[in-house]
Amino acid sequence: MRRVVFSLATFIALAVVSFVGVDALPGDGCTALLGRFGTNAKIDACRQENNLNDSVVVRIKDWSGDLVRGDLGYSIKRDEQVSKIIIPRLRNTAVMAAVAALIAFPSAIVVGLLLGRYPRKRISKAINQFSVIAMTLPEFVIATVLWLVLSIWIPIFPGVSVMPSNASLLQLLPNVWLPALTLAVVIFAHSMRTMRASVTNVQNMPFVESARLRGTNERKMISRHIVPAALPPVVNVVALDGAWLLTGTFVTEAAFNFQGLGRLAIDAISDRDTALILPIILFGLAVYLVSSILADSLVRVFDPRLRSSNR
């Protein structure tokens, strides 16, 4: 409980810092709308109309008041409610993240387990090498390779997405695959290596030795002893990677022209569309705070020692 209150306080403090930070940047919604040839008179009139001349304190008050009432604000440049812009993009990114997670996490855990259990097999070594490469390659390289192979050489998936942000789920799904695969390669390598290291570590522990001496068979050994003990560190990595899937997709979305939150964030920042930048920052903050709380609670489920010490 204390954890939640602390997170909430962090959230509020960071929200205020973000507002002031974004506000301090040169340019605002009006210069964004009117662009290079906007005259001073026009910009002033626009600022007046949108209350941009009020002091920072007044604007933070107005903004947070609206936020509490569920009003995310209004984008001057895009002439639209921020919620109307963000929600379809959020859905698209969430679908993409879910597909990436479904591909990457289960396979990472299984492969990591096998690699940790049978490290000497040639195939294990090969997969290990591949994961090192996958981790070091920038996303846009992975994206380009996947595009070349799965869209041009073997034309399975559409190369870049050519759909409106509010396309139906059926229209969306085909476009999700290449970006999701790109993200999956990155997080697969990451979480698989954590799992492998954790399994290697657990295998050398005395309780595994004693289980073996009791004559436990291989299947039971894995499911009862090794996996539960090896999972806690992996859960933390999965939580972090999961949060990254929702908030760190800028490059991948741009590479595939995917209409998600990451691409919107890039556009909003380059447009100085402050009304749009802030909710995206806040969403990212919330995702990280929630996922770290979630990870800690999950670790407790797996690790009886933490449960008892909490009493």
């Binding site: 559409p158 799904l173 556009d267």
Partner: peptide, 26 residues
């Protein structure tokens, strides 16, 4: 399977022009 259907290609009489974002929604 859906993805394969989603692959569009040239249709006679329809021109698809790629355009840059320009004014970002404005």
């Amino acid at each position: 399977a859906l993805a394969s259907c989603g692959r569009t290609s040239t249709v006679a009489g329809v021109l698809r022009v790629g355009n840059d974002a320009g004014f970002g929604g404005a």
